[in-house]
Structure formats: structure tokens, C-alpha cells
Amino acid sequence: MTGNHLIRTENLVKTYPMGLSQITALNNVSLVFGAGEFSGLVGPSGSGKTTLLNIIGSLDSPTSGGAEVLGRRIEKLSHREAAELRNHSIGFIFQTFNLLPVYTAYENVEFPLLLLKTPAGQRKKMVMEALEWVGLADRGRSRPSQLSGGESQRIAIARAMVKRPPLLLADEPTANLDAENSHHILQTMEKLNRELGTSFLFATHDEKVIGYLRRKITLVDGRVAKDETFPSPAGKGV
């Protein structure tokens, strides 16, 4: 698997044991994602979206087939190497924000840089920059409990983006937000994709998110049912 791509999966299969039988979560999934994409995996619950996101995010490995992410073969990574890949090159945004509750917004954004052992001066500059990207430079001292849902998710985006990863994975990022906040978040992510060239890959069945995608991959029963690309966002404003 070579070529000018960010992610490439080939005949990816993932099965889980369920009692005496096996559940097939992904069945021969072959996909290629280039740099700077703003794409999404869509489909009903149980279609394999999160499983694929897990494998691309080096949180899981395939049962068979292969996945190459940022030049690394996921199926061959040790736990430590997988953590290193996530630490250096992949940002995560979760449905429930998952900010560390005892730390301020600033410290939450700072955390990935601490793991990367970034020098203090540079760290401060990068954190402030990330907070400015999401429009929350003035909320750095606030604790997660003092932030609204929208603000929390924006801080989560800043945390995911602060190390400037080439790839950002977002699992149902708007599921806990109202329409206004969802659009705000999506506009922020779209802007970051445009300005920083970061690739975004969503797992979602939220029509609001789908409306912003430039590529939509529909999964059904672990197979790629449809792979559509749009010259401009699929349906902004839905």
C-alpha cells in the first residue's frame, strides 16, 4: 500500500466474538482518504462507523486486511506505537466532550502538549492560538463545569487541534448539542480544515454534520454501500 494518501484501508475485516459465534462489524472495507479531506462515515447504528474510526484511530486493529494511516500499518503497531501515533498525529473529538473536569480549559488544551513534552514557552503560545481558533481565548481559566455544551466542545476541538495533527477523528461530535451550537462547531471545524489543512473524518448520523461533508461514505452492515463526493459541502444549513 503506497501512494499519496493519508489513510488507506484494503479489504478490512473486523469480527467480534459473540458467545460461540462471530459478529462481522466490518466486511472488506477498502477506502482511500487524501490529505485535507472533510469526510464522514454515515449509516445506522451497528453499521460499523465507530469500528472503522477505531481502527483508523489506532485504537483497534483489524481481524484481516490492512489499514495504513499516515504511513503506519495499524495491524502491525504495538500498543505503545499505537499510542505514539495517536499522541503525535491524530486528534480526537468525542460526543460527550470528555474534558478533564478538574483542569481549566487552558490546561485541558495544554494536556496533549505536555504528553509531547513541548517546551513551556512554545506550549503557551500554541494553547493560546488553539483557544483563539475556537474563539474562546477569554475562557482559558474556566473549568468545564462553567462552560456551556457548545463551549465545552469548542475546547475539545482546541485540545484536539493544539498539536496540529494532520488527522482529526470526530465521533458524533454534535450529538449533545443544539442546532445553533452544532452549526457553530461545524463551521469552526470547517474553517480549521480549510486554513490548516487538517483532515477531518466524522462518524455520524446527524444530518447537520452530513450537510457540511464534502465526502460521505455510507456504511451498511459493515460494507461500504455508497461513497459520494461533493464539490461543495453536501447540504450546508440542513
Partner: peptide, 10 residues
């Protein structure tokens, strides 16, 4: 969980 997902090793 978040820390592991963000790339901190076990």
C-alpha cells in the same frame, strides 16, 4: 479513557 485515547500510554 480520554488520556488513553489522546495517546498517553497505559
Amino acid at each position: 479513557g480520554v488520556r488513553l485515547a489522546l495517546g498517553e500510554t497505559k
